[in-house]
Write a protein that binds this DNA or RNA. Structure first.
Lengths: 344, 344
DNA sequence: CGGCTTCTTTGAAACGTATCAAAGAAGCGC
DNA sequence: GCGCTTCTTTGATACGTTTCAAAGAAGCCG
């Protein structure tokens, strides 16, 4: 169980400690004969390089961190996948951490990764995290904010035009003739939630006679979507909305399931539903979900690129903020199949 | 940008380097006056403890690793959540890594976490990974194998009785009168896939007149489920199975979606479908999915408990292997709503 | 007041690695 | 054969922290 180090390897291979280190890092600079002896010693002893010492010596490790608010939301899982791929191509390892939308845990991970000496961090957050990122950046660890446009020009970010997304969603609902829209999601203080709402409001304002109400939420999960559905179903029919814009697909799915299965409400005839994120499960839900889609596949890789540029110190002022355009994906939860096939 | 260390803090606070360290680790052993001076210096300088050096000195860090084959499968994401919760309660941080079902990447992460000096690892894998875990364990890093029962008594594991799961699924299909079952999933060399198939076979053997075919798969994703659906729909009606047991919910959802929406096949009337894992999206799919459920909520925490016992060196031989019992959750993809309500 | 214990503070040593400067070996051309 | 260059090898040093042994300060009791 005694931890084996470079020193043991050296003595077994009968070479100096420095030679072993050279073999590991610049194999070409060591004679073929010793190369073999050393490799054998490494295998025999089961030597594994101690990362702590390695990092301490080098100052940094070839890893980056990705902090997601909720790994069980497929949206973030998909992004993680893209991050992984691009990072692997650049020889970087990725540590994923799940803050579970808890500010406390988010802080704790930020701190730990900084102390850990990662090269940089990708931070998707529902919190106003930018100030902390600035602190950390000034201390030498760069980061990319994901999902919110950073306020500071110095803080790189990758985001979606959320206002436009909200606008597209509600505009579509109005286009198909709905007039009583409910925006399901909260708290509005979460940047993404607030901006989507603003976009929704903009669409409503353009159209006289259309009203919007906001139904609050805390976690934005499937379960919460179900709760809201019960709440809506409990209202007298004439007080129910005829359209719902859910802040994300998870809530939309919960709503959909409960409205349709439990309460026999017809979607889209009685209530049309639009989600957000274009999660992979939206397409195969009870009633395929109309949703707002960002470029999932570009999100992760773009963030990694921004981060590596930042690490290399070559991030140019103009290119630090990437804002993607959302698009609307129309499915059966807002239009009946016949009309849907026209739309596609 | 110059990295600030304990030394700078000490000189700014006009105390010795050792005192600062004491303040950080045993605040009670330093006089109140200096305590204040040191804290101020830390704040002014924005000192963050260098984890590499810390770990190097201590030998180990208070972290564990969770390696999952596919984070975007909600099944693993849910487990990750449970792992996180239990670990946080024990003061442990969790690094999540995504091997993407690639043996190469799995190896690379195993190696990196070992070098990283984590206290232990939770490994969910579709590969025969046990030998490598044994190696790593002998070198001093314990682990818990998740999702497969370990062959060695010394290797802790948390798993589901997969054979029973397969049996339950197919038994149910037979009970509702189906005779031509297709098992969709592969490769059979993946332990979980093979065992579920064995269970399915056992159920078929009990029932004369019932046949089963296996339709192979590689990744077991939604997309692959869709492909298989196209393949099945392309057959003459009489050669189609009247029941499908999919190796996981992801494939089942892909199948469901494509069979129903694209090909107009009725589920469960024409083909009944059973999934596996009881993913949160199964309940809200096009047609709510009958599925085999393991105790999601216990899985992660149990694994963490096993691991901490192992770390503490107090794992008892008998308790190292936890095997959970699966149960069948019946929904609309195998029985019509009327019958379903009876079942619930 | 002297000796004892307890509380603070100190500086040095160690953790395992990469790298640097320097020494040694070997090969080459003249 | 000599001096030069190039290729290998070596051992010492530093990375930033914790901890240990020891010294100093302070308080207490007889």
């Amino acid at each position: 169980m005694a931890r084996v180090g470079i020193r043991e390897v050296a003595s077994l291979a009968e070479v100096s400690l420095g030679t072993v280190s050279h073999y590991i890092n610049h194999p070409d600079r060591v004679s073929p004969e010793k190369r073999q002896r050393i490799q054998k010693a490494i295998d025999d002893l089961g030597f594994v390089r101690n990362n702590a010492a390695w990092q301490l010596r080098l100052g940094r490790s070839a890893t980056i961190a990705y902090i997601a608010p909720d790994v069980s939301n497929p949206f973030f899982a998909t992004i993680a996948e893209g991050v992984e791929r691009r990072a692997a191509a650049g020889g970087l390892k990725v540590f994923i951490a799940n803050s579970n939308s808890s500010r406390e845990r988010e802080d704790s991970y930020l701190e730990m990764f900084e102390a850990q000496g990662v090269q940089g961090m990708l931070v998707a957050s529902h919190e106003p995290v930018e100030d902390r990122l600035t602190q950390i950046r000034l201390r030498g660890t760069p980061s990319v904010l994901m999902g919110q446009r950073a306020a500071s020009p110095a803080q790189p970010s990758v985001s979606l035009d959320e206002m436009k997304g909200g606008f597209l969603a509600v505009r579509h609902l109005i286009d198909i003739g709905r007039t009583r829209v409910a925006y399901v999601g909260g708290p509005l203080s979460v940047p993404q939630v607030g901006e989507r709402y603003e976009g929704a409001l903009a669409a409503v304002r353009e159209s006289p006679g259309v009203t919007i109400e906001q139904i609050d939420a805390v976690d934005r999960t499937i379960a919460e979507g179900r709760d809201v559905a019960d709440q809506i179903a409990a209202r007298p029919v004439e007080e129910r909305p005829d359209a719902i814009f859910a802040v994300n697909d998870l809530m939309a799915l919960g709503l959909l399931q409960t409205l349709v299965v439990e309460h026999g409400i017809r979607v889209p005839q009685d209530i049309a539903i639009v989600g957000y994120d274009d999660t992979v499960f939206g397409a195969s839900s009870i009633i395929p979900l109309t949703t707002v889609r960002g470029p999932h596949d570009s999100f992760g890789p773009t963030a990694v690129d921004l981060l590596t540029a930042e690490i290399a110190g070559e991030g140019s002022e103009e290119s630090k903020h990437v804002v993607f355009d959302p698009e609307l994906v129309i499915r059966a939860s807002t239009v009946t199949p016949a009309a849907s096939s026209m739309a596609e």
